[in-house]
């Protein structure tokens, strides 16, 4: 058995699990944070994307033991004090979801993408960066629109903050 201690959404959590326990199982079953979804379980669909030490990873393809000692952010950790994260707000505004199953992974991927590209995104980049996230409802169009809008919003926000 593995004794796991990690920071999840800013809170230090501990738990015991089998060495073979996947990070997504630890998050959902041990921590009760069911916002992170399991879609395909074969590393293809991206519904399980979370951030580990600031990087988007597929939590179905990482052991909880591998993430021992790491900082993990899940979809539950994005909003602050009842206010949606700009990417969450943009998904709502631009109808970036229908059934919502892929949405947690889409949003975590989008936040990571915007950070890595410093908010400078175009449609082609967003579409190719969404390679690892599958949506079966939207046809991606509004997801792409939402991410571009959020990137712009976050970019202009940081500009204001810098001034």
């Amino acid at each position: 058995m593995a004794e796991i201690t990690m920071t999840v959404n800013g809170r230090t959590v501990s738990g015991t699990c089998e060495d073979r326990t996947l990070l997504v199982q630890f998050i959902r079953e041990n921590q009760g944070l069911t916002g992170t979804h399991v879609g395909c379980d074969t590393s293809q669909c991206g519904a399980c994307v979370v951030h580990v030490d600031g990087k988007a990873v597929k939590s179905c393809t990482m052991l909880a033991a591998q993430a021992n000692g790491s900082e993990v952010t899940t979809i539950e950790g994005l909003a602050s004090g009842g206010e949606l994260h700009p990417v969450q707000a943009a998904f709502r505004e631009h109808h970036g979801l229908q059934c919502g199953f892929c949405t947690p992974g889409m949003i975590m991927t989008a936040v990571d993408m915007i950070r890595r590209h410093d908010g400078k995104l175009d449609e082609h980049t967003v579409r190719s960066e969404l390679d690892g996230n599958i949506c079966r409802c939207t046809g991606y169009h509004n997801i792409v629109k939402a991410i571009l809008a959020a990137a712009e919003e976050m970019g202009s926000g940081s500009k204001v903050a810098a001034e």
Binding site: K55, A56, V57, K58, T109, D112, R116, G132
Partner: peptide, 9 residues
């Protein structure tokens, strides 16, 4: 290679 999340690991 793969996708962004796979490339992170």
């Amino acid at each position: 290679i793969g996708d962004p999340a796979v490339r992170h690991m």
